[in-house]
């Protein structure tokens, strides 16, 4: 028999809380010591397939290979760019990972991405010993478009996307805006008119604030419809 959780599912736990004893396997943000599983961060308890984890409520963005991120060019070097992706590590975007052609020189690099430009990129490699490596080769990647940039907590990104993208799909449909969500919490919004964009921004902030409430997708849908007078 699988040992039960000692705390309720989706209950708020704090570091040091004992979550389970016995057979359950440790997932993310928990620590197993002598058959006991403890919480490592403030968050909500989750149990899936015999794995206990804590969904953190706060924290910094930690890059993972495959993540889509939106960053800002900090500096053009000799062979690539340094990009701020709001992680504890500076990211590197080498010349070879862009569609740039020709010889690398500092002047050429600035012509492609200038310091301060926003880029949509994918993390291709990252581990404990190396800084994250980005690529802008691929559909939808490259210099960022958009009229508005919104920054939310990276821990709230999954909620903004929703189960199988339900939330973000709804938001795009209802506001008619193009919205790109970076895993690092940066969101780009570009719409037909100013009003739709403003509503989208407001909705995103509300999702961040109320990330843990029930029936949020429906609430947001109502709000957007009301605001846009539909």
């Amino acid at each position: 028999m699988v040992a039960p959780l000692l705390v309720g599912r989706r209950e708020i736990v704090v570091p040091g809380d004992l979550l389970a004893e016995g057979d359950l396997r440790p997932g993310d943000n928990v620590l197993r010591e002598d058959n006991r599983i403890y919480a490592l961060r403030v968050g909500l308890v989750d149990l899936e397939g015999g794995r206990v984890s804590v969904v953190p409520l706060k924290g910094c963005y930690f890059p993972r290979p495959g993540d889509l991120v939106i960053g800002r060019i900090v500096e053009a070097g000799l062979t690539g760019w340094e990009v701020d992706i709001l992680a504890p590590y500076p990211a590197l975007l080498p010349m070879s990972e862009t569609y740039a052609k020709g010889q690398a020189s500092k002047a050429d690099l600035s012509a492609i991405f200038f310091t301060g430009d926003m880029v949509i990129a994918k993390v291709i490699a990252f581990d404990r010993t190396r800084d994250p490596l980005l690529t802008t080769k691929g559909p939808g990647l490259g210099k960022a478009f958009g009229n508005r940039v919104v920054r939310i907590s990276p821990m709230k990104v999954p909620r903004l996307i929703g189960r199988k993208g339900s939330m973000i799909t709804m938001l795009k449909r209802e506001t008619g805006c193009r919205i790109i969500v970076g895993q690092n919490g940066v969101v780009l919004i570009s719409g037909r008119d100013d009003r739709a964009e403003r509503v989208a921004v407001e909705a995103i902030y509300r999702i961040e604030r109320e990330a843990h409430t029930k029936g949020l997708t429906d609430g947001i849908e109502d709000m957007v419809r009301r605001e846009l007078g539909r």
Binding site: V14, P15, G16, N29, L31, Y38, L40, R41, V42, P56, L57, K58, G59, C60, M155
Partner: peptide, 11 residues
């Protein structure tokens, strides 16, 4: 520290 979301064994 806990509020910053830093992983901690215990308070």
């Amino acid at each position: 520290l806990a509020d910053a979301g830093i992983p901690m064994r215990d308070l």
